[in-house]
Amino acid sequence: MATPTAGAPVHVRGPEGPWDDVLRPLSERGTVVTYGRVTDWLPEDTGERVLRPLLGPRDWGRFQRLTHRRVRDGFLASRLLLKHTAARVLSSTPEAVDLAYKPGGRPYLRGCDQIDISLSHTEEVMVVGVTRRGLLGVDVERAERPMVGTGVEFQACTPHERELLESLPEQTRNSALVRLWTLKEAYSKAIGQGLRFRFTEFGFTLDDARVRLQRPDGSPGTGPEWSFGTFALESDYVVSAALRDEGFGGTEDTAADTTLDQGLLGVLLGRL
């Protein structure tokens, strides 16, 4: 069985889409990663009347408590991209989608587990992953973010990865490290752990044909249900995705309004 991977991120310019470009890969592969620019997604009207129902009471409260403008913008725009994307996939509206958070911070759609979601953003760019196959984590970083020489190699890399980095020409070392970092973030977010799962306890290959998760000594880590991918975003950003296929086979229908079986409801509502 070829493991289905997440495809290259799809640019969504605003609430108007283009959504067909998002729904098609989701239907074909079961997973899609979208991205947008913060400035494109900031609404003109940021009043309570519009934003409160869009964000929901919890995120509306968090939004109001944020004071730093760029942080506020990033928070708002990324939630809008996420909620609009989820709403399209569920054939619903962003106001009806309940974006909730696990105690460790992992976002999920309460009551709608036909899809799993993941969110990541920098100051300018945000990325949203959606899958109907199981678990998904995504991470985005600036491709030029300086990491080599900052201690990241020691705090976040396995011995095997450090050897790998040292074997690379100096000019490609930083981008390799950024890529490793995003893969680690993506995996750790997929299992809801963020930085709590120590990054020195697992590593990645950088083989373009098939990225694999490895144990610190370079031996295989996760099983075949996991797949990983890294993509360049408009040459300025690196996006990684980690996907766990739970193996239930394709369930193509992700709409909310078809969730409940009519025959079953008939019995339950005493109609049959």
Binding site: A96, G111, T259
Partner: peptide, 12 residues
């Protein structure tokens, strides 16, 4: 019955 907000209420 089958809107995301109602389904979220079943979770709650």
């Amino acid at each position: 019955l089958s809107t995301p907000d109602t389904l979220a209420l079943t979770d709650r």
